[in-house]
């Protein structure tokens, strides 16, 4: 869907004019396009300001500085560390949320008492603000008197310092994210699982396939496009995460949870060096384009493979 050869711009425009004459309903789209421009125009501005020395306190002294901000970023050790944290957070979040979410979806697809209620509860973590999720887990993860450590003691497991230790802070933030992302993945995959017809399973049973075989050779291949789809959405959210981390750790302790997005915020608003902060946000955009673009391509391929198109 994303990367396909487009016809020339001119052809596009004349197409649209013709279309607008034939169908006045196209006019109904104009307000939306204007609103969309509110988003896309600032993005263009971002690129421009990333080549200036824009300082939030001195907006009248904007000077073109060329590539200075960009070069500074690539030379800065904090950048590489933030990139590393961003990628690690993304990989951990994805590697855990998708199998666990799939597991939850398959579990909730079984017959059991109160299934409706359990399924309904799934949407609750998704609906609440992520800053509230971060607040909640922060309270539970208190090293002293926190309820998670209380459970660990009861289970005779070593207690953790959770968000307050450089060793465990990133993992703890991943857990907070998992709380709602497992629910998200499960919800989307549950809908997908229902579209797989029972007949396929029944005929496989007749052929003597056991549970594992049915999962590996029927469920998994048929779900692949949906799995890639949730990977796309999780990737977007994980790579541009801000609220959860900001509310839980503010990027600390040290720099262990400072992602590119947090770093962009830190430079642009805490240090007020907007020109310096923007390359971080723009580079994150590039990372997103590459990763999401690849997954989109994979998604198109998998749909073709499964025969959904």
């Amino acid at each position: 869907m994303m990367f396909e050869a487009s016809t020339s711009v001119k052809e596009h425009v004349s197409d649209w004019v013709l279309y607008a004459r034939k169908n006045p309903m196209a006019m109904w789209l104009i307000p939306s396009f204007l609103v969309a421009c509110i988003v896309l125009a600032p993005f263009a501005y971002s690129v421009y300001y990333s080549f200036t020395n824009y300082h939030a306190m001195h907006p009248d002294q904007v000077k073109w500085v060329g590539l200075v901000n960009w070069i500074k970023m690539f030379q800065h050790p904090n950048f590489w560390q933030a990139l590393n944290v961003t990628i690690r957070f993304w990989l951990m979040g994805l590697a855990l949320a998708i199998p666990l979410g799939l597991g939850a979806a398959m579990l909730l697809n079984q017959e059991f008492q109160g299934r409706k209620v359990v399924r309904a509860l799934l949407i609750v973590p998704i609906m609440i603000p992520n800053v509230v999720a971060a607040l909640t887990w922060n309270i539970m993860m208190q090293p002293l008197g926190g309820v998670l450590n209380f459970f660990l003691i009861k289970l005779h497991l070593p207690i953790q310092r959770w968000l307050t230790s450089t060793d465990t802070a990133l993992n703890s933030v991943v857990i907070i994210d998992l709380w709602w992302s497992i629910a998200f993945v499960a919800l989307v995959l549950m809908a997908a699982l229902q579209s797989v017809s029972d007949e396929i399973y029944d005929s496989a049973k007749v052929d003597g396939a056991n549970g594992l075989q049915r999962f590996l050779y029927i469920t998994l291949p048929l779900l692949t496009p949906h799995l890639i789809l949730v990977a796309i959405y999780r990737s977007i959210d994980l790579l541009k995460v801000f609220g959860i981390i900001y509310m839980a750790t503010e990027g600390g302790p040290g720099r262990t949870t400072t992602t590119l997005h947090i770093e962009a915020y830190d430079r642009a608003f805490r240090q007020m060096l907007m020109g310096e902060g923007l390359p971080y946000a723009l580079l994150l955009t590039a990372v997103l384009v590459i990763i999401v673009g690849f997954l989109e391509w994979l998604w198109g391929r998998s749909r073709h493979f499964v025969g959904a198109e």
Binding site: F43, Y49, A264, L278, A281
Partner: peptide, 26 residues
């Protein structure tokens, strides 16, 4: 048209918030 708009939405969704909000602030 649908594809164009779908693409636009996806783009809007995956732009990091600060790449838009910093210039919006200005």
């Amino acid at each position: 048209l649908q594809k164009t708009v779908g693409l636009m939405f996806l783009f809007v969704r995956f732009i990091p918030t600060f790449a838009v909000v910093i210039p919006l602030f200005i």
